[in-house]
Every structure is written in structure tokens, then in C-alpha cells.
Computed example of a mutant assay.
Amino acid sequence: MATDDMWIWDGGRVCLDFTNTLRYRWRTAPEETLRNPDDLALWLQRAGMLAPGIQDPGTTAVLTSGRRLRETVDRAVLAVADGRVPLSGDVTALNRSAAQAPRPALQIVIADGRLEPAAGMSVAADAAAALALIAQDAVDLLLSAEIRRVRVCGADECALRFVDRSPARNRRWCSMSRCGNRTKVRLHQARARRSEDTSAD
């Protein structure tokens, strides 16, 4: 069973955190963190998509469906972020899945002295409905201006997806504390080795 430290929550959107459950996509054999239905149910609970204490985590078929949705979201998001139109089959699959999402009751909040719709996502009663909420989040992202801020981590051995919300829109890593610092240390060590080699000549 996967553990919390297997999952990274730096995507900025639940649909991107979900795509990041397949780690090291650049490898010939990426690392799967959703190995069984219990892993999927635990991830969905940690993401706030699935009500805690669900006794039936879902079936192998739901897990297969979740993995398929994950790859559909990934292809569609990367296509649109790159200025391309996603595959029509991916659009159909996302729409079909998002249509199964439970409909939350519309709520309002007072912001700056005026009424606005409250942001929020339903909590599903089962894994299949929670996957539909992820599809709904992906559809929302694809239609938003934020899609142009989706990035792939620039670290050589990462490739996690995230939304760049930095003011200058120049974030390079999924996390400065993880990939950013590692990259800086590696570059510093490489410069130091080159300097030593030059001094030895």
C-alpha cells in the first residue's frame, strides 16, 4: 500500500495532483503509486475528494478507470497548455466522466461587500464519484486562463505537473524545497568540480 510520502501535493489543482500519482514519467517504467483500489481510495481521501471511513474502496475496475482518467487528464492538459487542441476522444472521456460528478449545492459568500459564488468541491461517497470530481476539475482547468500557467517541473528527474502561480510566471520546479534546491546543489557541485579540474591543469 502507498504511503503519504509517495504522493506530492504541489500541483495547485486536484487534477494535476492526480496526474502526479504516476511518478517519473520520463522513465521507461514510471513509478505507479496507485497500485491497488485501497491506494486509490486513500489518495482520494487525502485529496479531500472522498468521504473518510468509506468501507468499500472500490474495485479493480474503478482503479483501472482512475488510471485511464489520469492519463486522459494529463494528455489534455499538456496539449491545451501547449496551445494545441486535445484529442477528441480525450474530450469525450472527460465530459463523460465529469457528467457523473455529484452536484454540489450552490453557495454564496460575501467578498469585498458583495455576493459571490463560494468556491468548493463536493466530497463523494464512493471512488467512482470522486474520480468524476477530478474530471470536473480538469474540465474547469482546461477552460480557464490558468491553463496557460501549467508547467512540467524542470528538474531532470521529476516531470511533475503544476500550475505556476508565481507573480513573474517563471516558476521552474514543482517545489523549490525539493527539486529546486536539489538542482541548485547539483549545479554548484558540478561548477566546483570543473573549477578543481581547471586548477589541477
Rank of each mutant, 00 (worst) to 15 (best):
A81R: 04
D82W: 04
S199K: 14
A192W: 05
L16P: 06
R161A: 14
A61T: 07
Q55P: 00
V152W: 02
G53L: 08
T28H: 13
A135G: 01
A76L: 06
V91A: 12
N170P: 05
R151G: 01
T59E: 02
A41D: 03
A41T: 01
G12Y: 00
G154Y: 04
A168K: 12
G66E: 04
G53A: 15
S122F: 01
D5H: 15
L16N: 02
A118Q: 08
V123C: 13
R194D: 11
R178L: 10
Q55F: 02
A135E: 00
A61F: 10
W43K: 02
D39P: 07
G83W: 07
D90R: 02
R103N: 15
L34Q: 00
C15M: 01
R84W: 05
A125D: 14
F18H: 02
Y24G: 12
T198K: 15
L142F: 06
L115A: 13
L16D: 10
E31W: 06
R13S: 08
A101R: 02
R172D: 08
T3N: 14
R46N: 00
L69V: 03
A76G: 07
L40K: 06
M49P: 06
R75H: 03
S144G: 11
R84I: 00
S97Y: 07
S65A: 15
A159R: 11
W43G: 00
R171A: 07
T60K: 13
W26Y: 06
Q189L: 09
I8F: 15
D38A: 12
V109Q: 09
R96D: 12
M1P: 05
G180Y: 08
S175A: 15
D140S: 07
T59Y: 14
S195F: 14
R172V: 04
Q189D: 08
I54L: 04
D82H: 09
E146I: 01
T183Q: 15
A190R: 12
T60R: 09
P30T: 05
V85C: 06
K184Y: 10
R193D: 09
S177D: 15
D39G: 00
A128D: 03
S175E: 08
L42K: 03
A41N: 03
D90T: 02
A51G: 11
R171P: 01
L40N: 07
I8Y: 13
D112Q: 13
A105R: 10
M1I: 12
V185H: 08
P117K: 13
A127K: 00
A124W: 05
D56F: 02
N181Y: 05
G58Q: 01
D56P: 05
P167M: 12
G11I: 13
T183S: 14
C158N: 10
A129Q: 13
T21D: 03
V14Y: 06
A2W: 13
E71C: 10
T92K: 07
R178S: 13
D156K: 09
A51V: 07
I134L: 14
L94K: 01
A105V: 09
Q189M: 11
R23H: 07
A101M: 09
T33K: 11
R191N: 10
R96S: 12
A119R: 11
T72G: 04
D56W: 03
A145K: 09
W7R: 15
D74H: 08
D10K: 13
A93Q: 02
A130G: 03
A47H: 09
S65E: 15
S166N: 09
